[in-house]
């Protein structure tokens, strides 16, 4: 039973108790004082119960879990283990850049410094947030408020600390030669394209459950989506990713996409695209650069 169920049930009990008290008031039951005493006792127990239900235990591991996600790692190595993980991630980013262009030692040093700056800045923000979180039991409202506050940090962490809006990116753009930068950006664009293509294929496989497609239809739908749309600029999270692709599909000219579907399938596909359009606000809000400076 969830906390909300418990609360609903408590409210239901309270209402019923009040109703019965009204029904049973002095005319029908002798010993009013005794009845009231029992009712008060019950009410107190109920209030205690509701209060207990409202209190949630919040510890530092939980706060770290909201942001970093990996409970096992937090328990094994403490929060500092994330600094090491993020540092490894930074080195991998540099490795990736060096597959497209050779970096001079000063360039690599500058980028490493910038990357570490991003890590420090993020960890400072995290630690400031963690200090805001009191240990021990907190009210349900407070818990929800803090959890909500953790979300921009969590999104930033999941999206990578060295992406758009980071010091690393800024230094990359100012440190690399134009030709080097063009290569790195082309490589990044290709990676984005590959990731988007994977997402499009998965979305088409999801569509296939609602509108079973032939191999030819699947191929044409993937091809037209890849040729007529681009990966969303924003980082789209969670289950909105498939809706983001449906939204992109809805932006394709009808005469390019409709011929893929049989007459009785097209209205069904339009229903799916409408779902993408309806989710638009969520899709792009989820990816907004709210952490950027």
């Amino acid at each position: 039973m969830t906390r909300i169920d418990v609360l609903r049930e408590s409210r239901l009990r309270r209402t019923i108790a009040a109703l019965l008290l009204a029904l049973l008031a002095p005319e029908t039951l002798p010993g009013q004082d005794a009845v009231e005493a029992v009712a008060e006792e019950a009410e107190e127990a109920l209030v205690d119960g509701v209060n207990n239900v409202n209190m949630i235990l919040l510890n530092p591991e939980q706060v770290a879990h909201w942001v970093f996600g990996n409970q096992n790692m937090i328990q094994r190595g403490g929060i500092q283990s994330y600094r090491g993980t993020i540092a490894d991630g930074l080195r991998l980013q540099l490795d990736l850049i060096e597959t497209t262009t050779s970096l001079t030692e000063p360039q690599r040093t500058k980028l490493e410094l910038a990357g570490r700056g991003d890590v420090d800045r993020f960890m400072d923000r995290y630690e400031a947030f963690a200090r805001e979180c009191p240990g021990g039991a907190v009210t349900q409202d407070k818990y929800v408020e803090l959890n909500r506050k953790a979300q921009p940090l969590a999104r930033r962490y999941r999206a990578g600390l060295h992406g758009e809006g980071s010091l690393f990116r800024k230094v990359l753009r100012s440190t690399l030669e134009a030709e080097q930068l063009a290569r790195v950006e082309a490589s990044q664009a290709e990676r984005n394209r590959m990731r988007y293509q994977t997402l499009v294929k998965a979305t088409v496989a999801m569509i296939d459950q609602k509108i079973p497609l032939t191999a030819d239809q699947r191929k044409r739908l993937i091809d037209v989506t890849m040729s007529e749309t681009t990966p969303p600029d924003a980082v789209v999270e969670g289950h909105y990713k498939y809706y983001a692709v449906l939204f992109q599909m809805s932006q394709i000219r009808e005469d390019r996409i409709q011929p893929i579907f049989a007459d009785d399938e097209w209205p069904a596909f339009k229903v799916l695209m409408q779902q993408g359009q309806m989710a638009r606000g969520m899709i792009f809000r989820a990816g907004a650069g709210e952490f950027d400076e």
């Binding site: 108790a17 019965l20 049973l24 029908t28 039951l29 010993g31 005794a34 029992v38 009712a39 019950a42």
Partner: peptide, 18 residues
């Protein structure tokens, strides 16, 4: 008027899970 206050009410409370 057949019910007798406290016991009956306690039973009710029990029935509602208090």
């Amino acid at each position: 008027g057949t019910a007798r206050g406290q016991d009956f009410f306690k039973n009710l409370i029990q029935a509602f899970g208090f």
